[in-house]
Design a protein around this nucleic acid. Sequence first.
DNA 1: ACCCCGATCGTA
DNA 2: ACGATCGGGGTT
Length: 183
Amino acid sequence: MAVKIKNKLESVPSSRLSRDFFTRPTVIVAKDLLGKIMVFNGIAASITETEAYVGKDDPACHAARGRTKRSEIMFGPPGYSYVYFIYGMYHCLNFVTEPENTAAAVLIRGCKLLDDSALHLNGPGKLCRHFAITRDHNAIDICGDKNFYVLDNNVRPKFETTPRIGISKGQDKPWRFVVKSNG
DNA sequence: ACCCCGATCGTA
DNA sequence: ACGATCGGGGTT
């Protein structure tokens, strides 16, 4: 199917990422999301940076201390948005992964707009600020919503692997993935 | 009810 | 290197 995107005049031949895509292990999903096209209210961007947060045994994951009001969505089925508020001023966007009751998610840390500006939104707070993503957009079904979804364009860019940013626990895990700018 | 810290960002 | 800024989770 060809999907029309408001800020990119041409159509992009692609299909929406399925529930099965998000049901897989979180580190795999985080890598595979690189280069995919996220579309929010008609604005499209290529995902350039992700991090995996892998369930109750990952001390950096919000689900590590069990189910709370905030982390509840991560315990549900995969393919849903998880948006939380941080540092009193920013929001961060995640996509829930792995089967229901396995509380894990991929943090979307960066993307590049598919318009003439090609603006690089490097950082999860800046990304949400640009799209105006807030907690109002928590728990949206990315596999079913008509205004918020990710397109599978079969792109597999080269990427680098590093420890995750801004965490005080779990720094030993190399679960941050960044698209190489030149490849 | 209170306290501390945080999956950040912009400026210095 | 650091301050802004406030919700959430843990503790009382």
